[in-house]
Design a binder for these strands. Structure first.
Lengths: 270, 270
DNA sequence: GATGCACCCTCCCCCCGGGGGAGGGTCCAC
DNA sequence: GTGGACCCTCCCCCGGGGGGAGGGTGCATC
């Protein structure tokens, strides 16, 4: 039961509220190694001063910090570094929360019994040369990338001569990462930093407008997709968004207007 | 590419932003069955009106609703029932958030370089007969159970003659569920509903006080545990909490005082 | 010193909700 | 009729555990 201040795994479990199983796993993962392991029997013995470490692990796991990150946090001797790593993860939790919020908003709209009919327009868009920033981006990073790119674009371009927009590769949604491009129409597009001129090809676009914050924009995408299929069209390229009214125009998200345009071609006679 | 308004899995994937793999999995799980499955080739074909269902699933999964629950939500034809099931899950997310908040509070305290010394007292507690409610409870349900039990207890007992408290089986923390008892000291404890008299045995308690909300009470538990071990004692029974100052006394969580008492016996000469 | 029994060990399989990749068949536009 | 994009099934992998089998240990009690 006792061995001079050294704790068997069961006692340590009681004191830390970590299950015996979990303690063994943390040993295997070299995350929390017993103070003593009896070579003959394999019995693990912990010391009381390992309790704080166990508690830190426990809390970090409650925050869904991966074991590998937990290890890095514990291994970093400097409290400042630790705090930074933890803050990083809290940041991740924060954006997780954003995702949750927008999922809730989408659900609310999806589960509404009545769906307002969609106002869809088929529009021929000519080619245009614009100032753009583009990159291959992971879906999770799109928002952050977008914020940085638009800031740089605005700094370089100044006042655009038309409606700003973006192109989003279908692969972004299919496989979680893809090519993304944001642009500002401007006369004589400059080349500076990441900004460079790009000629957007002429396309036939199926266009609809999404009103409000982007939380539930996925719903509008789906409705537009249904319309595309119902009208015997097929998707032919990255989706285009144009930001008719956005955060740069009004602080009221309810007033935002985003046009969603899907390049299409006809697959069957009308 | 097209078959009269019917979509191959890849097209459906593009339209719903669900990966092909995931769509196949949802088929296997009978969650979202293709409108047509070609018997000869196994090719799955979806119809455009399955897009809303796919979107609902997508959003529910973003909220970490288990697939089985997603199925129940989709299968329930009544919008009211659906909404209730979704609300249930949002409630779960809410309590998850509470857990996260308290984990963050604990971490903040744990990662502080300086730990204030613990004020621990060894106290002989005589046996006492109290009015109690007890049950076997899962760790996740403790808070809800506690709220119900104390409400019933207060309704039956009225004003207690001493400090209210609770006993928490160590198994609750070790294996996720265990025996829990809440009590009010009172003269001539009544028997009504779940309330019944219980005689708490006399014990030798190691006692310390936790000040503030219970978010980071686990940290105090750990410190007390260290003290127990450092003083050559061993745990001998369910931990006791007494609520010296609680939410019934003041709305300010910072003023709450909870005594934590661990029954102990001496395992080595002093 | 034996015995009972709580405790501890390792090992293997299971859960969830996917992703990676192999190996092979199908669709359809040119 | 052929190339290439698309689709199929099957198996293994991940993380962070839980359940349980089968067997060894520690120690208080007799």
């Amino acid at each position: 039961m006792h061995r001079g201040g050294v704790l068997a795994i069961g006692e340590f479990s009681r004191l830390t509220h970590l299950s015996v199983r979990t303690l063994r796993r943390y040993h295997d993962a070299r995350l929390l190694e017993p103070a003593i392991v009896d070579g003959a029997t394999g019995y693990r013995y912990y010391s009381a001063d390992q309790i704080p470490a166990a508690q830190v692990i426990h809390r970090l796991r409650e925050l869904d910090v991966p074991l590998s990150d937990v290890q890095r946090i514990l291994r970093s001797p400097d409290p400042g570094t630790r705090a930074a790593l933890v803050a990083d993860h809290l940041q991740r939790l924060e954006s997780e929360l954003d995702r949750t919020r927008s999922a809730v908003a989408s659900l609310r709209r999806l589960l509404q019994p009545e769906q307002p009919p969609l106002d869809v327009e088929l529009r021929a868009v000519p080619a245009a040369t614009v100032a753009a920033i583009e990159d291959d981006v992971a879906l999770d990073d799109v928002l952050a990338w977008y914020a940085g790119a638009t800031a740089e674009l605005d700094a370089v371009v100044g006042e655009p001569t038309g409606v700003p927009g973006g192109l989003y590769d279908n692969a972004l949604f299919e496989s979680g990462s893809g090519h993304v491009l944001v642009y500002r129409p401007t006369t004589d597009p400059p080349r500076s930093g990441r900004v460079h001129p790009v000629t957007l090809p002429a396309v036939e676009l199926v266009v609809t407008a999404h009103v409000g914050a982007h939380d539930d924009i996925g719903v509008t995408y789906g409705q537009l997709g249904s319309w595309v299929v119902a009208n015997a069209l097929a998707v032919a390229g990255p989706v285009r968004e144009t930001y008719l009214v956005g955060p740069r125009d009004t602080a009221d998200p309810g007033a935002w207007r985003t046009e969603i345009g899907w390049p299409v071609f006809r697959v069957a006679p009308p």
